[in-house]
Amino acid sequence: MKKRKPQIVVLSDVHLGTRECQADSLLAYLSSIRPATLVLNGDIFDFERFDKAYFPPSHFKVLKKILGLAASGTTVYYLTGNRDQVFRKFTGTTLGNLQIRDKLLLNLDGRKTWIFHGDICDLAGTQTKWVVRLGALGYRLLFLANRGFNRVRRLTGRGPYSLARRAGQNRAAAGHRERFEKSVVDLALENRYDTVICGHIHHPKKAWRETPKGNCLYLNSGDWVESLTALEYHFKRWKLYKYQEDKLLPFFADEELKGMDMNQLISSILEITETNKDKKTTDGSGD
């Protein structure tokens, strides 16, 4: 099946290792594209909730697919977020086509573009730990309730409904998003960037922001828990890709991934990792 070839793809907030992660949908999306550059913009893993007892084959397949893209020539940047900040001690590390960084600066057709996760601009991060943990617990309980609620809806012939998205539409949530976006844009303009891309708040968006300091294109890649969105750069413009609306063909996971058991997946991932290490040594590339 023919794959689309966008120049750049940015995705964030996958939250591998949690039950909310929509790994099957992400795998189908990744199988439909072959980008020149893939930016993983933070919280790809969720180490704050990581449970060794829960990491199903679909999550391993996502890792295998990403590493396979790197092995086949795609430049992959892993930008660290707040949920996978354990990787920040490896910032600057390069393994073949895979690079770990905390931010990415690009010049795209004359526009200075800054890509980072966004957690440093989240005013909610100044709250005490118990408030943050309480909010995270409430979010998880909402998803569990949503799962049971949608089972009932399916039995009655109705489509899925997102309680989390509904909760996110209230005035307080909208106010928080507005403050976050303003903080991101102000910081970008202070550093003379024309475009700023982040994730973190699970709210996909593409908008021109006009301020007294100047104008800036604000982009948020959303998440693969609720929104199932990504950003694609092609033909000198950014598009907000929405999996549930934009998939025009019935893409499925690559055949080589569909039939693999857990041991085969792990062996395959290790093999790709070793190949990337060997390539780094052969190329003589440094960190």
Rank of each mutant, 00 (worst) to 15 (best):
K3D: 01
R4K: 12
K5E: 09
K5G: 04
R19S: 07
L27D: 11
R34L: 05
P35T: 03
Y54T: 05
S58A: 14
H59M: 06
F60Y: 15
V62S: 05
L63S: 05
L69V: 02
L69H: 06
V76E: 06
T80H: 01
N82Y: 11
Q85F: 12
L95F: 14
Q99F: 08
R111E: 06
W114T: 01
H117R: 09
G125K: 04
L137G: 08
Y139T: 02
L142Y: 02
R147V: 00
R154C: 03
S162C: 10
L163I: 13
R165F: 09
R166E: 09
R171Y: 06
A172G: 00
A173Q: 07
E178L: 15
V184N: 01
V185A: 10
D186N: 13
L189F: 08
Y193V: 04
D194R: 14
T195K: 00
C198I: 06
G199K: 05
H202K: 07
K213P: 02
C216E: 05
V225W: 02
T229F: 01
L231G: 10
H234T: 13
K236R: 15
K239N: 07
Y243A: 11
Q244H: 07
Q244T: 03
K247A: 05
P250R: 03
D254F: 15
E255C: 06
G259I: 03
G259A: 12
T275H: 12
T282E: 13
G286M: 05
